[in-house]
Simulated scan of single mutants.
Amino acid sequence: MITIDRVSKRKGRTRILHDVTFEARPGRVTGFLGQNGAGKTSTLRILLGLDRPEHGTALVCGRPYRDLDRPLTTVGALLDGSGAHRARTARAHLRWVAASNGLPGSRVAEVLETVGLTGEGRKRAGRYSLGMSRRLGLATALLGDPAVLVLDEPVNGLDPAGIRWTRQFLRDQAAQGRTVLLSSHLMGELAETADDVVVIHHGRIVAQGGLAEVTGEHATLEDAFFALTAGGASW
């Protein structure tokens, strides 16, 4: 469970988040939708303890990230690529992350299999394609077998096959009972993946609920998004 309650933040004199409030529930993919610069990444950084809010709370399984005893066993995150050094092999990277978090080395082979990289584990990360790098990032997020996954724009730049694979992967993770929070500005893809949708615009939540509820009488989620953000969108 993820709970964001009245989170606000300033950057200099500009308030970039205004009382952001929403939940992401277990067994569901929650799409966090907004244009670039709307406040998605700022919200996720606060959730993951990388930034502090001006006020409000961001909780993972009822606790702030900084209070988690072993964070990787509660929440797995993918914010920017795989995080692996280009000269390291995937196996070496995962072994290092596992050891530094007190996790058994046996998890390395398990997560490589989960993301379909078993045969590529001895290849250096610098030789990975974008899609393979994203899979390695997902493998890293899964090392601690967390209840929560937080992903920021995971399909950006992927080819159709990579997007389709990621979509099914996220659906599978939710089906296993995990809470999946997926940040994206790709409305068509979110409509194919998410159970629930939270729309943020200029740092404010303008809609949230089940996919059908947010789409409403509009033909597509894209149509609903532009109706909700009419007069202020900047792409």
Rank of each mutant, 00 (worst) to 15 (best):
V97P: 11
L117T: 02
G121S: 14
T74G: 10
R91M: 09
H55W: 05
R122T: 08
R95C: 09
N101A: 05
R88T: 05
K123I: 11
L94Q: 09
G102D: 12
G105D: 08
S100G: 02
R124A: 14
G56R: 07
A98I: 08
S106P: 09
H93E: 13
L78A: 12
T118N: 13
V108H: 03
R63D: 00
P71F: 14
V97W: 15
S106Q: 11
V115M: 04
G121C: 13
E113N: 08
R66N: 03
R88I: 00
L103D: 10
H93I: 09
C61V: 08
R95K: 10
V115E: 11
G81C: 10
L78M: 15
G83T: 10
D67G: 02
R63H: 04
N101G: 04
L78Y: 10
V111K: 03
T57P: 00
A77V: 04
T114P: 09
L112F: 06
R91K: 13
G76N: 11
S106G: 13
H55E: 07
L117G: 01
R95T: 08
A109M: 00
R95S: 14
A77R: 03
A92D: 15
N101H: 11
R70C: 15
P71R: 06
L68D: 06
D69G: 02
V108M: 11
V115K: 00
L78K: 05
R70Q: 14
V115Y: 03
R66G: 06
G126H: 03
V97S: 08
R66S: 12
H93Q: 12
V75Q: 05
S82Y: 06
A90K: 09
E110N: 01
L94K: 06
R63G: 00
R66T: 12
R63T: 01
R70E: 15
D80P: 05
L72W: 02
V97M: 13
L103C: 14
G76P: 12
G119F: 00
A87V: 01
T74Q: 13
V75N: 02
L78V: 15
V111G: 11
A92I: 01
D69N: 13
V60A: 00
A109P: 02
V97C: 06
T73L: 00
S106R: 10
P71Y: 12
V97G: 10
G121H: 13
G56D: 05
S82T: 00
A58N: 09
K123H: 02
R66V: 13
A99S: 08
G83F: 05
L59G: 04
D69M: 05
A77N: 02
C61M: 14
G81W: 06
S106D: 15
T57V: 11
T114H: 08
T118I: 05
